[in-house]
Simulated assay, not measured.
Amino acid sequence: MWKSCATASSPVPDDAEFCRRISGLLEEGYVLHGGPTLTCKGDTVIAGQAVVLPSDQD
């Protein structure tokens, strides 16, 4: 059972800030859900990653 679902906000540039945001969510107990998504906008790689917070209830 999942308590909530989040993404690292809207897709953002694949940079150190994106990595920090995902790492922070993982430290809060979120887990990765599926694989990352990548696309390009000009010369910028845009990344997205779904994360979910498992529920304490089963």
Score class of each variant (00 low, 15 high):
residue 1 M to F: 05
residue 1 M to Y: 03
residue 1 M to H: 09
residue 1 M to G: 04
residue 1 M to L: 11
residue 1 M to S: 15
residue 2 W to Q: 08
residue 2 W to D: 07
residue 2 W to F: 14
residue 3 K to N: 13
residue 4 S to T: 06
residue 5 C to F: 13
residue 6 A to K: 03
residue 7 T to R: 02
residue 8 A to D: 08
residue 8 A to S: 11
residue 8 A to K: 01
residue 8 A to L: 10
residue 8 A to E: 00
residue 9 S to A: 14
residue 10 S to P: 10
residue 10 S to M: 06
residue 10 S to D: 08
residue 11 P to N: 02
residue 11 P to T: 00
residue 12 V to W: 06
residue 14 D to C: 09
residue 14 D to S: 08
residue 14 D to Q: 05
residue 15 D to S: 07
residue 16 A to P: 03
residue 17 E to M: 10
residue 17 E to L: 12
residue 18 F to N: 01
residue 19 C to Q: 13
residue 19 C to L: 14
residue 19 C to T: 15
residue 20 R to I: 07
residue 20 R to W: 09
residue 20 R to E: 13
residue 20 R to D: 12
residue 21 R to C: 09
residue 21 R to T: 13
residue 22 I to G: 02
residue 23 S to N: 15
residue 23 S to R: 10
residue 23 S to C: 09
residue 24 G to P: 01
residue 24 G to N: 13
residue 24 G to F: 03
residue 25 L to S: 05
residue 25 L to A: 06
residue 25 L to H: 03
residue 26 L to T: 09
residue 26 L to W: 00
residue 27 E to Y: 08
residue 28 E to R: 12
residue 28 E to P: 02
residue 28 E to L: 15
residue 30 Y to R: 00
residue 30 Y to K: 06
residue 31 V to Q: 12
residue 32 L to A: 05
residue 32 L to T: 04
residue 32 L to N: 05
residue 33 H to F: 07
residue 33 H to N: 13
residue 33 H to E: 06
residue 34 G to C: 04
residue 34 G to Y: 02
residue 35 G to Q: 10
residue 36 P to N: 08
residue 38 L to G: 04
residue 39 T to K: 15
residue 39 T to G: 15
residue 39 T to N: 07
residue 39 T to A: 11
residue 40 C to Y: 07
residue 41 K to Q: 14
residue 41 K to R: 15
residue 42 G to N: 04
residue 42 G to F: 00
residue 42 G to T: 04
residue 42 G to M: 02
residue 42 G to P: 01
residue 43 D to Q: 13
residue 44 T to Y: 01
residue 44 T to C: 10
residue 45 V to W: 02
residue 46 I to Y: 03
residue 47 A to W: 00
residue 47 A to S: 02
residue 48 G to I: 00
residue 48 G to C: 07
residue 48 G to M: 01
residue 48 G to L: 09
residue 49 Q to F: 02
residue 49 Q to M: 13
residue 49 Q to H: 08
residue 50 A to P: 05
residue 50 A to E: 08
residue 51 V to N: 02
residue 51 V to H: 00
residue 51 V to I: 06
residue 51 V to S: 00
residue 52 V to R: 09
residue 53 L to F: 10
residue 54 P to M: 09
residue 54 P to Q: 03
residue 55 S to Y: 08
residue 55 S to D: 13
residue 55 S to E: 08
residue 55 S to W: 05
residue 56 D to A: 13
residue 57 Q to C: 14
residue 57 Q to M: 09
residue 58 D to P: 15
residue 58 D to H: 12
